[in-house]
Design a protein around this nucleic acid. Structure first.
Lengths: 157, 157
DNA sequence: TATTGTTATACTCTATAACTATA
DNA sequence: TATAGTTATAGAGTATAACAATA
C-alpha cells in the first residue's frame, strides 16, 4: 500500500524507507557524530583523523610501505605521500629506504610518534567505549558480528 | 591474562580490542567503502556526497533555512552558505527571502533540482540495498534497531 | 543583545595524472 | 612493462572568526 500522505513520492520510490536504507542512514550519522568528537580531541594533539589512523596503524605494523598503507586507508599513494610528509614534518614518522627494493620506503614511528600515539590511543578508545555505551555488551557483540560480516562482504573496495 | 605475543602493547592498553572498539572499526570501514562507491556514481551527475544530502533533505523538507540545514548536516552555517552557493550555481537550489524574518533564507529545489534528485535517489538506494545484501532482512532489522538506538543516544552532537 | 547569513582565511583531504627511479 | 614513490593541479569540505542586517 502506498502512503496517502505523500503519494507522489511513494509512487516514485523516492520516499521508501526499508530496513537497509534506514540502517544505512543511522550508520552514517553515528560515524559522523563520533568522528566529529574524535576530531575535536585529536585537534589538541595537532592530529587529524587520517593522521591518527596512520599512527595507529604503524604502531601495529611498522615497516609498511606507502603503497601498503594506501591500500589499507583506501586512498591513493599520492595522498599517502602528502599525509606522510605532514607527519614527518611533525617528527612523528620516518621514511627508511628498503634495502631489498630501492623503489620502496618503509615507514616507522619515531620515538616521539610512538609516545604520542600510545598516549592518545587509550583516550580515544575510552571515548568510543563511552559513546557506544548506549548499547550493552551483548548488543555491542551483535553489532560487531553484523558489521564485521558486512565489512568483509564489501570487499577491499 | 595478557597476550604473550605483545606484552608491552597489552600492558599499555594499546592493543586492547573489545567488542565496542571492533564494532566501531568495522562501522567506520563500512561507511568509508559505501561512501566511496556512492561518490563515484554521484560524480556522474556532478554531485558530491554533501550536495546529494542537501538535495535529498530538501526533497522532504523544502523551505528550511540555512541554519536549520546546518544543524541537520552537523556543519556550520558558513559551510552551508558555500554548499548552497555551489548548488545554486548549478541551478539546482534556490534561496527565497523569508517574509516573516528578513534575516533568513528559505531553501527550495528548482524544477531541475527536483528532477535530478528524483532521478538519482532510486539509483543510490538500489546501490545501498545491494551493498547491504550481505545481511538478510532479519539481520538488517537488527542492525537498524541497534544503530537507531546508538544514533539517538549520541544526541544532536 | 542574539541570530541569520555572508565573507575571508587557512588547512586537510581527495582524485587525477604526469613524472622518476627502480624492478 | 610494471611498480613505488613524488610532484603538480584542482576542487571540495571543514573550522574559525569577523562582519552586516535584522530580530
Amino acid at each position: 500500500m502506498l502512503n496517502k500522505e505523500a503519494p507522489i513520492l511513494e509512487a516514485s520510490g523516492v520516499g521508501l524507507r526499508d530496513a537497509a536504507m534506514l540502517a544505512w542512514l543511522h550508520m552514517m550519522r553515528c560515524v559522523l557524530k563520533i568522528q566529529r568528537r574524535e576530531a575535536n580531541t585529536l585537534a589538541r594533539y595537532n592530529l587529524t583523523l587520517p593522521q591518527f589512523e596512520v599512527l595507529s596503524h604503524l604502531l601495529v605494523t611498522e615497516g609498511t610501505t606507502q603503497q601498503m598503507l594506501a591500500d589499507h586507508l583506501l586512498v591513493t599513494k599520492g595522498n599517502v605521500c602528502g599525509l606522510i610528509d605532514r607527519l614527518a614534518e611533525q617528527g612523528l614518522v620516518e621514511r627508511q629506504a628498503d634495502p631489498d627494493d630501492r623503489r620502496a620506503n618503509r615507514l616507522y614511528l619515531t620515538p616521539a610518534g610512538r609516545d604520542l600515539i600510545i598516549q592518545v590511543l587509550p583516550t580515544q578508545r575510552a571515548m568510543i567505549r563511552d559513546l557506544l555505551g548506549a548499547l550493552n555488551v551483548e548488543e555491542q557483540r551483535t553489532l560487531l558480528t553484523l558489521l564485521g560480516r558486512l565489512d568483509r562482504g564489501l570487499g577491499p573496495l
